[in-house]
Nucleic acid binder design. Structure first.
Length: 699
DNA sequence: CTTTGCACA
């Protein structure tokens, strides 16, 4: 394999300092970024103006010399678009090899890829391509730089466990610590032990760099003289690249606030009164909070009079209909000031231009998982310093800004956690563990994770997979069910349901149901038209429950010719239904590959319900005998649960139900519920129910 | 009487 950067031939001009932990740090050099600009296209000049440009040589030097390079770069440094191009220019894609760059989100993959293709002056999908679910814009044999989501790269490992096509893999936004990023980091470390020539670039925030470096520091055996000539150093290097953001002045409250909603509203009004023009972004916790704050603000404005009517108040959260989201991105008309009240979506996933002021409540909703009850819940919790910094940074994108924190400086300095808990340690692990199993990782408890989940959570996941017949007594994937489930990109319970549908002759219906279960909600939540909305829902409601209701919606959508007008009239989310169709198509292809034919059971909804039970028997619940308020108890753990108000079975309260998921806020709510007969449970999973205390209702 | 938001050949 040829090397393209010749160590020693051109020393980087930046200052090199040994890190006390064995890494290497380049300190920012003072040399000017702009070299002679004559004859360059404007895109080329733009590339050179990015902060990352003056580190070009340093980056190539480090990647050549180190197995892993950690790039600490703030937003706007240009690292995501530039580093892959530097690598390509230095020859890392020669000889048919690939430079891979992962992103945690599909949208980021698409935008970064098209930007890079534009800069390189090539057609997207040729030298520069991308792969996300449902969309492969690459050309094997031609593509040199490939952008992809973390999840897609993990899937690629199932075909090619050592990712032999790649010479370098850059993991972008690794500090977000999503489950798939963490899994990917663990797997890449493992691959690097077998392929020391593989180079990794981990892009991270300042706070996480040190722990990333420790994680990737591989003590290679039998190398008494350090790294050999051919192989890079196993010690990671850390490189810092400054961002392009403007300074943000931080303000704290002097006394802790008792009501952060009211405090947020007051702060917005104060900013509008005292500060020069510029939009305001307020971070709150959820839809509830946001709607309440919108109402509060509007009331105050009515009282305060004319000057305050210049405020344009907009809510922002993922569940918002498309049209409302477009308002957020529309430029503010002259003399008006936009106030966006947002969830965490504006922290990482969306960027709003024109924001100069940020109001940070200090809270967000966070997932948390209890492996004993096997319940995931959402709780309002204090954010980390890393989050607080990210939020503040949103004020400095167009010019110097201000951030108003609704907590004291003392709290920030002494009590706030510096990093959040990685999602891996707050989640149910079934999907994660089955993927590792499919990659041949037998010793799950011994897997080297960037942040190890609790043994309880791992054991719980193994138990669930065992009860579904996906793992055997030796915790190996069963043949064929276990391997097939691993190949289906869904929650294993739903995958199992799909495979079981074959036994009940209803694969057609179950594929539709599984696809609906994979989208957040197909309904459009519209406030103020409660009655019409409920009527629309009733048109599709099935007595059996939500799953059968989905079948009715699917039929209606098809009969309408997949019309968006039809969706609008029925309060259905057109985008979500199109996604259902996409997912169904993918699932059908996979299932056909297993030799399972598409078969409909026509009107036999008993068959459909039995197939659902085959996957979700562990979620069986029984209505409490004397319950006045619709209280159910789970069969497995006697947990108190209620039917979610969005379910067609809300207030119907059948005696026995199965739920697809629990949402836990003030109570545990069952979402996507179907009525069942108790005898079907013992029929479907005798091993699971035989040791339970006898229940008179079962006979 | 109601969830944060990403993602998976």
């Amino acid at each position: 394999m040829s090397r393209f950067w010749k160590p020693g031939s051109e020393k980087p001009s930046t200052l090199l300092v040994d890190d006390e932990e064995g890494g290497v740090v380049f300190l920012p050099s003072t040399s000017s970024a702009s070299s002679s600009g004559f004859g360059y296209a404007s895109l080329e000049r733009q590339r050179q103006r990015l902060p990352v440009y003056k580190y070009r040589k340093a980056i190539l030097y480090l990647v050549e010399r180190h197995g892993t390079t950690i790039v600490v770069g703030e937003t706007g440094s240009g690292k995501s678009t530039q580093i892959p191009q530097y690598l390509k220019e230095a020859g890392w894609a020669d000889g048919g090899r690939l430079i891979g760059c992962t992103q945690p989100r599909r949208l980021a993959v698409q935008t970064v890829a098209s930007r890079v293709a534009e800069e390189a002056g090539v057609k997207l999908g040729e030298e520069v391509g991308y792969t996300i679910r449902f969309e492969d814009q690459t050309n094997p044999g031609m593509t040199m730089i490939k952008f992809l989501t973390d999840g897609v790269l993990i899937r690629e490992m199932m075909e090619d466990p050592l990712l032999t096509k790649y010479s370098v893999i850059m993991v972008d936004e690794a500090h977000e610590r999503s489950i798939s990023t963490d899994m990917l980091l663990g797997l890449l470390k493992k691959i690097q032990r077998r392929r020391p020539e593989l180079r990794l670039i981990i892009s991270s925030a300042t706070i996480e760099a040190r722990s990333m470096s420790t994680f990737f520091n591989i003590r290679r055996k039998n190398s008494s003289l350090g790294s050999s000539d051919d192989l890079p150093s196993p010690e990671p290097a850390i490189l810092s690249v400054e961002g392009k953001g403007y300074t943000v002045e931080i303000h704290y409250v002097e006394e802790p606030v008792s009501d952060y909603l009211q405090a947020a509203v007051n702060t917005v009004l104060l900013i509008h009164e005292k500060e020069p023009p510029g939009d305001i972004l307020v971070f709150l916790t959820g839809q509830d909070d946001i709607d309440a704050a919108v109402k509060l603000l509007n009331e105050e404005i009515q009282h305060l009079g004319r000057h305050y009517l210049d405020l344009v108040i907009l809510p922002l959260y993922s569940g918002l209909p498309r049209g409302d989201q477009d308002l957020i991105f529309a430029p503010t008309s002259k003399g008006k000031r936009k106030v966006v009240l947002s969830t965490n979506i504006a922290e990482t996933s969306l960027t709003l231009e024109g924001v100069v002021y940020v109001v940070d409540s200090g809270f967000s909703k966070q997932k948390c998982y209890n492996p004993i009850s096997d319940i995931e819940s959402l709780v309002v919790a204090p954010i980390s310093k890393a989050s607080a910094r990210q939020r503040a940074g949103r004020a400095g994108r167009v010019r110097p800004g201000k951030c108003f924190r609704l907590y004291t400086e003392e709290y920030y300095l002494n009590e706030m956690q510096s990093e959040g808990i990685p999602e891996m340690q707050r989640s149910n692990l079934v999907s994660c563990i089955i993927q590792l199993k499919a990659l041949g990782i037998d010793n799950i408890l011994g897997f080297d994770w960037p942040a190890s989940p609790s043994p309880e959570a791992m054991i719980r996941a193994l138990e669930v997979l065992f009860s579904l017949g996906i793992l055997d007594e030796d915790a190996k994937l069963t043949v064929p069910v276990g391997f097939q489930v691993a190949e289906i990109p869904l929650d294993p319970m739903i995958s199992k349901m799909i495979l079981s549908a074959n036994d009940f002759g209803c694969s057609d219906e179950i594929l539709t149901i599984a696809s609906f279960l994979s989208v957040q909600s197909v309904w459009v939540s519209v406030r103020g038209v409660r009655k019409e909305f409920d009527e629309a829902k009733l048109r599709f409601a099935a007595a059996e429950g939500d799953h059968v209701t989905f079948l009715n919606i699917y039929k209606g959508f098809h009969q309408s010719g997949k019309s968006s007008q039809w969706c609008y009239k029925n309060f259905l989310n057109y985008q979500a239904l199109k996604k259902v169709i996409d997912i169904r198509g993918q699932l059908l292809r996979i299932v056909k590959g297993f030799g399972i034919p598409l078969k409909s059971c026509d009107r036999d909804m008993q068959a459909v319900r039995k197939a659902i039970i085959a996957g979700s028997f562990a979620n069986a619940c029984h209505l409490e005998e004397y319950s006045q308020n619709g209280m159910y108890k789970t069969i497995r753990t006697s947990q108190e649960v209620y039917i979610h108000p969005s379910s067609v079975l809300f207030r119907v309260n059948p005696k026995w139900v199965i739920y697809q998921s629990l949402v836990s806020t003030d109570k545990h709510y069952m979402r996507n519920v179907i009525a069942i007969e108790p005898s079907w449970l013992t029929e479907a999973a005798p091993h699971f129910f035989q040791f339970r205390t006898p229940n008179p209702d079962l006979h």
